[in-house]
Amino acid sequence: MINKQYSITQAPNYWYDIMRGVEQGYSIKLTRNSEVVAMLVPAQYEQPPKQNFWQALEIFRQQVNIAELYDENVFSDVRDRCPGREVLL
């Protein structure tokens, strides 16, 4: 979303306002003779490309050792071990 524009000659005088706007998520155009020559965008636009599920799963499998995460005693005290009530037929 482009919200403001400044000419290159104005930019030094409004640098604080320009940077504050970019920090708040605005995109700022810089112009020369009414033509856009540059655009300042928030850093969030520099995120790496998104992966699909299978790519993310493969990366996860490479980075995490599932065997280290497994703990057989995790649910040991959760299940009720009593045989239950008697059922009459």
Rank of each mutant, 00 (worst) to 15 (best):
Y26R: 03
D77A: 04
R79S: 06
A38T: 04
L57C: 03
L40D: 04
Y26I: 00
Q24R: 03
V64R: 10
T31I: 11
I66Q: 11
F75G: 13
V41M: 09
E86C: 09
T9V: 11
N33W: 00
F53M: 06
E23F: 00
V37D: 01
P49E: 14
P42C: 08
S34C: 05
D77L: 14
W54T: 07
Q47E: 04
G21I: 00
S27P: 01
L69R: 09
R61S: 15
I18T: 03
E72I: 10
M19L: 15
E23H: 08
E46Y: 10
N3G: 09
E86K: 12
S76Y: 10
Q44Y: 05
I8C: 05
Q62G: 12
K4G: 07
N73H: 15
D80P: 10
I18P: 00
N65V: 05
E72F: 02
N3P: 00
I59G: 05
Q24D: 08
P83W: 02
N13R: 07
G21R: 04
Q63H: 11
K50M: 06
R85H: 13
Q62S: 10
Q63N: 15
A56G: 11
R61L: 13
K50N: 12
R32V: 07
W15F: 07
V78L: 15
I59S: 13
N13H: 08
Y70W: 13
L40C: 00
P83F: 01
Q10G: 02
Q55C: 12
G25H: 03
V22W: 01
L30M: 03
V36W: 02
N73T: 10
R61I: 09
E72R: 14
K4L: 04
Y45D: 09
R32C: 08
I66R: 10
I8Q: 01
Y6M: 11
Q44M: 13
K50V: 13
A43Y: 02
R85Q: 12
E86W: 14
G84P: 05
I2K: 11
V78E: 15
R20E: 02
V37G: 04
N13C: 10
V41N: 07
Y70A: 09
V41E: 14
V78R: 09
P12A: 13
P83C: 08
V37Q: 12
M39Q: 15
V36M: 13
W54V: 01
G25K: 02
Q44K: 15
F60L: 15
W54I: 05
V64M: 07
I59R: 11
N65D: 15
G25Y: 08
L57S: 11
G21L: 06
P83V: 09
V41A: 08
P12M: 08
V36R: 06
P42E: 11
E86V: 13
R79K: 05
D80Y: 12
G25M: 09
E86L: 12
A67C: 03
I59C: 10
P42D: 11
A11R: 06
V78Q: 06
Y45K: 07
P12L: 10
L69Y: 11
N33G: 14
R32S: 04
Q62M: 15
V36F: 04
G25S: 05
S7W: 02
A38R: 01
D71A: 07
Q5L: 03
A11I: 05
P42L: 14
M19Y: 08
T9E: 15
A56D: 06
N13S: 14
T9R: 04
K29Q: 09
G25Q: 01
W54D: 07
L40I: 09
I2V: 08
G25C: 13
S27R: 06
I18H: 02
